[in-house]
Design a protein around this nucleic acid. Sequence first.
DNA 1: TTGAAAGCGCTAACAG
DNA 2: CTGTTAGCGCTTTCAA
Lengths: 322, 322
Amino acid sequence: MSKTTIKDVAKVAGVSVTSVSRVLNNRGYISDQLKGKVIQAIEDLNYTPNEIARSLYKNETKAIALIIPTNLNPFFSELTFYIEKELANLGYHLYVCNSLNDSNKEKIYLELLSEKKVDGIIVGSHNMDIKEYDKISGNIVSIERKINDRIPMIISDNYLGGKLATEELINNDCKSILCITGDQDESSPANNRLVAYSQVMKKNRLKEYIYRMPFTDTREEKTKKIRSIFEEDITFDGVFAGDDLTARYVIQVAESLGLKIHKDLSVVGYDGTSLIRNLFPEIVTVVQPLERIAIKSVEILLDMIKGKEVKSEYIFKVELSN
Amino acid sequence: MSKTTIKDVAKVAGVSVTSVSRVLNNRGYISDQLKGKVIQAIEDLNYTPNEIARSLYKNETKAIALIIPTNLNPFFSELTFYIEKELANLGYHLYVCNSLNDSNKEKIYLELLSEKKVDGIIVGSHNMDIKEYDKISGNIVSIERKINDRIPMIISDNYLGGKLATEELINNDCKSILCITGDQDESSPANNRLVAYSQVMKKNRLKEYIYRMPFTDTREEKTKKIRSIFEEDITFDGVFAGDDLTARYVIQVAESLGLKIHKDLSVVGYDGTSLIRNLFPEIVTVVQPLERIAIKSVEILLDMIKGKEVKSEYIFKVELSN
DNA sequence: TTGAAAGCGCTAACAG
DNA sequence: CTGTTAGCGCTTTCAA
């Protein structure tokens, strides 16, 4: 928090601020002699350039914001991790913004862009009225979410995921398969999992059972709902859960009801984060290539910042665990 | 990303930039008439003040950095969540910095302070040579880590945690209790868990078994080590694990070896994050009041930024789950 | 009440 | 090769 500025360095080195700036940025003509003096002064004063001043001049902050519902969820936690890692490698820093599915909070975070505090935003959230995004200029990419035509989308192949999951359950001889999905709307890429489920079920002449469970439900709420589903007369022998946490809750409820997993009930989850797979290696799940998605998001965003043309959609394959 | 500046607003409103600044900051004398014109112009131009310029002038960024080993770990994930939440409430933004236990990375992140890109830093990491911190001026608080006398420390009562855990195992009639701990050095607060374990064991005339497992070990490495411990002749009937993930791995290995948890082997974990407790409600663990720790860290850091006096240590009680 | 002007720390024309 | 100087967009004395 030293107050040493480029002026102090210039004074101590006995040169102009320009010369200091030159060695700082290693740009422009400068004799080795001056350079030496400047470097010496910088060391003596333990000087660090003020990045804020640089940002103001360059109109560039080397900061990116990531807006997600909550980093408590392993999916977003892992996404955050890989994005931060990649950005750090490239000399950027990451603001993490938990919108908590509150469109008002999301809006406030988006202001980081117009306030010039960030060079770009990666959105993994989606609560704000989509139209609001139309007003916002600046560099934005979106993960697993279609926002508008100007905002590139990095997604995984949700249709394939839904297909793999449903087929896996059918291969396990399940006849009565419940699909638990989030409360996303039809335009959401995640909805394609549902489409795939329906198609595969139809093809196999099986009756569809769809249950919508809001993302925002707590563990207690989810568990309660799952319990009441299982306590109704329909006896499912397969569940395709919308995410791994839900899959785990289903397993907990089923076991508490005396069901044997794999034998009485097959469960397939979704996401396949390392944490969940470490904690519950036995879980069958659709694995998203999170690291690749993260790296691609960063790549696309930085391309946009550099003014390069980017495609409007990037799709990644998923696969079944094990 | 509009390029509208305060000058544009002034021009459109037909006033000086000073007046615009006045209404922006709601400070100083300004007639209602001028104020109205300015507000109108701001709306017409969809103007947002450039926070970077403000930061430069005020020498304050309203940004805080959190340096942790990795936000993949539920403990740090939850810490990040609560810190970000609290900061957002107070109008601050959070940079998340995963040091990956690499002292060089930690050093680079610390530069955020001297570059004036942040107003303060919360450190939950600890790899950098402690002496390096002495050179750093600026506002820093530390979580669960003694860095130096100038840096306040927010910790939980590790001694109490170790005591509760060991006593719980003894109450479960365990006679042969293994303590798995991290590779922290003796000055680390976490070391007090070990001290408590030793004292309680001694008091009960039980033989101590301590195993050090580096934080940085992967799940595979940890599992392998745990397996070889259990395959040796000593047959433990109790394990005090250094964190909940390790506890889970112990349980996995034990079950794979045909042991019944609770009956053949009792396990007590540490941390008690909501995620693990949701996923794994039956786990017995020492619960740290993470939200309170997070809020206190923010409070102390902001106090330091405001120039207030703060204590050098803040200790929080822990408790056993269930 | 209002505005002109200096300056936060830095970079980059432009002269020399 | 080196230095003077004009901003980057904003806030705040200080005069008017």
